[in-house]
């Protein structure tokens, strides 16, 4: 280890650890995993500080390292997941009948709040977070990648090693589940 970069890394850590932790936890939904990712990120940063030398913005550099670590983790999780089957994530019986009509207990109800006000409320985000944890790993990853990094579908499919049509089916079902979960916790609370 290059002891000479310890001071630089310590100061980067103090400045960016919270930011990176926050970036990680919204993507992995687990405190311990997010902390590990932050740790891994700074270990890489220390190792590669010599080639970085403030050539780019530190926050950009650190975020790029973290992002790669998150993608690696996603890949690993998806590989584990794919030992099982996609069947559960591509079934719609809970929501629609065989003709594709809404099932009675899955019918959306009117949330009766103005859209603008709803998204300003902290509770709504807490419920969204909670409902995201109720999704399966693959569903959450597919959804989160789309939303948080504006990643293109082809890239996501490549990273997750799924076909585009499977991807849309997974996100469709995930959306139905999320909507139902939010309705249950927010509107009927």
């Amino acid at each position: 280890m290059e002891k000479k970069y310890h001071a630089e890394i310590t100061s980067l850590f103090q400045e960016y650890a919270d930011y990176l932790f926050n970036y990680a936890i919204t993507r992995v939904n687990d405190q311990e995993t997010a902390e590990d990712l932050v740790q891994e990120t700074f270990i890489s940063a220390l190792k590669n500080y010599g080639s970085f030398q403030n050539k780019s913005k530190a926050s950009t550099w650190l975020t790029a390292i973290l992002k790669n670590k998150i993608i690696d983790l996603y890949r690993k999780k998806v590989r584990e997941y794919r030992q099982e089957s996609l069947d559960d994530l591509t079934r719609f019986e809970d929501f629609f009948d065989e003709k594709g009509h809404w099932k009675k207990d899955a019918l959306p109800s009117d949330w009766k709040v103005s859209t603008d006000r709803l998204v300003e409320q902290k509770e709504f985000y807490d419920i969204l977070q909670l409902c995201l944890t109720r999704l399966s790993e693959l569903q959450r990853i597919a959804f989160v990648m789309k939303h948080m990094d504006d990643a293109r579908t082809e890239e996501i499919c490549k990273e997750l090693d799924i076909t585009a049509s499977n991807y849309w089916v997974i996100v469709h079902r995930a959306k139905l589940q999320l909507r139902q979960c939010i309705e249950k916790h927010w509107i009927n609370a």
């Binding site: 650890a17 919204t26 405190q31 859209t115 902290k122 985000y125 969204l128 999320l178 909507r179 309705e183």
Partner: peptide, 22 residues
């Protein structure tokens, strides 16, 4: 459709609304 839009909006802003610290 309406609620889907709300969920998308909120999801893309999760970072700023749910800050957590170590």
């Amino acid at each position: 459709q309406k609620q889907n839009t709300i969920i998308d909006d909120a999801a893309s802003r999760l970072d700023e609304f749910a800050p957590k610290q170590m």
